[in-house]
């Protein structure tokens, strides 16, 4: 109780506007055989537009479950989960797909690029599923690839790109639909430390340009880049603190 009231204070301290993500007393309960597992147990969490949040916690803490809810890939068992003002529990499978398409850009640990598909085509993929479909999909994709520094790699296949470059393609893909939220799951987990720094710096830049970034990670180094850190343990939020973040430290 103490912790959640503290989270409320943090939120209250921010300029008041409709939060991009709002979880109210959310629980997710799995039944495995005869056992019930409370992956999330009455979590309340609110993330405003423009925040840079790191969600942390050991495995089994509930952070991945929270990420699935934030990503509209799953719906809670109990409680209300609102994304961009819409309660995801009330949406159909198609409406959830459209919500993900419009509002969220996903970045994964394993990049999840399609084999035998050029960087440009990878980035255009979310636009293929958009309703209505943009007429200038290719131009939008080119723009995003330039933004992540892959101007001269547009026709390369994943097998011809380094890990860092592949993750940049994935980030361009996540950005191409102008989402409000960039949701990254262990985005540096498959990268060396130098490339990790570059990728995290890219997230910081994107955040300063206005996009909301949520990074799920168990690495404290990565979490350092965020301006807010939410720690999960046993299905509860046990810590929710603001910190200077990478930009803040760079300014020091």
């Amino acid at each position: 109780m103490d912790l959640s009231s503290r989270a409320d204070e943090v939120i209250a301290a921010r300029p008041s506007s409709k939060p991009l993500i709002e979880a109210r007393d959310v629980s997710k309960i799995y039944t495995v055989g005869e056992q019930t597992v409370r992956a999330l147990d009455g979590v309340s969490l609110s993330i405003q537009l423009g925040e840079f949040v790191a969600i942390m916690g050991p495995s089994g803490s509930g952070k991945s479950t929270m990420m699935n809810l934030i990503g509209a890939l799953d719906v809670p068992t109990k409680g209300a989960m609102e994304l961009d003002g819409r309660n995801i529990a009330t949406l159909s499978s198609d409406a959830l797909a459209d919500l993900r398409n419009r509002t969220i850009g996903f970045v994964f640990q394993q990049f999840n690029l399609l084999a035998r598909t050029s960087a440009l085509r990878q980035v255009m993929l979310p636009l293929l599923y958009a309703h209505p479909r943009p007429a200038d999909a290719e131009a939008m994709a080119r723009h995003r690839l330039e933004q992540v520094g892959l101007k001269d790699r547009m026709d390369h296949y994943p097998s011809q790109l380094s890990g860092g470059q592949q993750q940049r393609v994935a980030i361009a893909r996540a950005l191409v639909n102008n989402p409000k939220l960039l949701l990254a799951d262990e985005p540096t987990g498959a990268l060396d430390s130098k490339t990790s720094e570059e990728i995290m710096a890219l997230f910081c830049t994107l955040n300063t340009e206005g996009i909301t970034v949520v990074v799920v990670t168990h690495e404290p180094d990565v979490a350092e880049y965020a301006k807010r850190r939410v720690l999960f343990r046993d299905g509860h939020v046990v810590e929710d603190i603001s910190q200077p973040g990478f930009m803040g430290r760079a300014a020091e």
Binding site: A97, D98, F106, N112, Y129, A130
Partner: peptide, 9 residues
């Protein structure tokens, strides 16, 4: 992945 980026069933 296709579902995550907005592919419907």
């Amino acid at each position: 992945l296709r579902m995550a980026v907005g592919g419907r069933r």
